[in-house]
Design a protein around this nucleic acid. Structure first.
Length: 281
DNA sequence: ATGGCAGAAGCATTCTGA
């Protein structure tokens, strides 16, 4: 079972690239971020023609998330919702369309577009941390101990210094600060593991390259797009790859897709190491 | 310290992203 995440930076501008990639890779589930389109204008039919179901949660110009699936999509949640009779949800957390989740083929799929945060001393940064903290309580509320969860998206956080091309320049700054990493760790708690780091321990692997300064050609990137899986899925992980050549397309998104292969019926190998900690801050 | 590049809105230029 192939599950992917891709910040496409406008689903309409990137449509032909997304369709070509789907035809090449044939993912079962594709989670999109930064669709940048209201729901009425989402190009649904292009995906439905290929046999996919689509759920969308978009807005004008900014943000927007979607899940595209070959399997039936059930129990859809758009934005933050209260399942267990909590208090009212502060409006600020649902004004920006950054979260969509659903049950698909026995898995809980949670797709997020975490706020960028701009710079450390900005109101946008405060919002990023508040949003992550609210996400943490939302997951506490939604998830049960034995749920099989794929938690994917553009997190706008490099989990450690090996996820940045020039740590000496960027460590401690936006997307690489201790505050953001602690907030992310708090969201993950000890519930999730980073699929990519099961298979690759070295630096030099990026999912985002700035449009500016020839960053892709110089391979100056960051790894900020992630597929986290609940620990009870770790033994079923067969691979996790970043489809970096999509960043080399003409008029590309600035992000590349990340893709895992889960073999739900195979439980013969156990990749999970009990000593595995989330990441060092 | 600042801008670089790209997309959307909408028609010149601003806002936002990471």
């Amino acid at each position: 079972m192939l599950i992917a995440t891709w910040n496409v930076n406008s689903v309409r501008t990137r449509l032909s690239q997304i369709i070509n990639w789907i035809n090449d890779v044939n993912p079962d589930i594709l989670c999109l971020q930064e669709t940048k389109v209201i729901d009425d204008s989402f190009p649904l039919s292009h995906f439905e023609e290929l046999g996919y179901e689509v759920i969308i949660y978009g807005q004008k110009s900014y943000n927007g998330v979607a899940i595209i699936s070959k399997f039936k999509i059930e129990n859809v949640n758009k934005g933050f919702t209260n399942q267990n009779e909590g208090g009212d949800i502060p409006a600020e957390f649902n004004e920006q369309k950054r979260l969509i989740s659903a049950d698909i083929n026995g898995l809980k799929i949670i797709n997020v577009y975490v706020p960028n945060g701009s710079s450390l001393n900005s109101t946008k940064f405060d919002y990023k941390i508040k949003w992550l903290n609210y996400l943490s309580s939302f997951l506490d509320d939604q998830l049960k101990e034995d749920d099989l969860v794929c938690f994917v998206g553009d997190f706008n956080i490099a989990p450690s210094k090996i996820d940045i091309h020039s740590p000496q320049k960027y460590e401690g700054g936006i997307m690489a600060s201790k505050i953001e990493r602690e907030a992310l760790n708090n969201v993950l708690k000890r519930r999730f593991i980073d699929s990519f780091r099961i298979f690759e321990k070295n630096t030099g692997h990026w999912s985002w390259w700035d449009y500016r300064n020839n960053a892709y050609e110089l391979n100056k990137g960051w790894r900020i797009d992630h597929i986290y899986v609940s620990k009870n899925l770790s033994s079923k992980l067969k691979s996790c790859v970043i489809e970096r050549n999509q960043r080399g397309n003409l008029q590309p998104s600035d992000h590349a897709p990340v893709l895992i292969n889960l073999e739900l019926n195979n439980d013969t190998e156990d990749y999970f190491d009990d000593d595995y900690d989330l990441f060092e801050i």
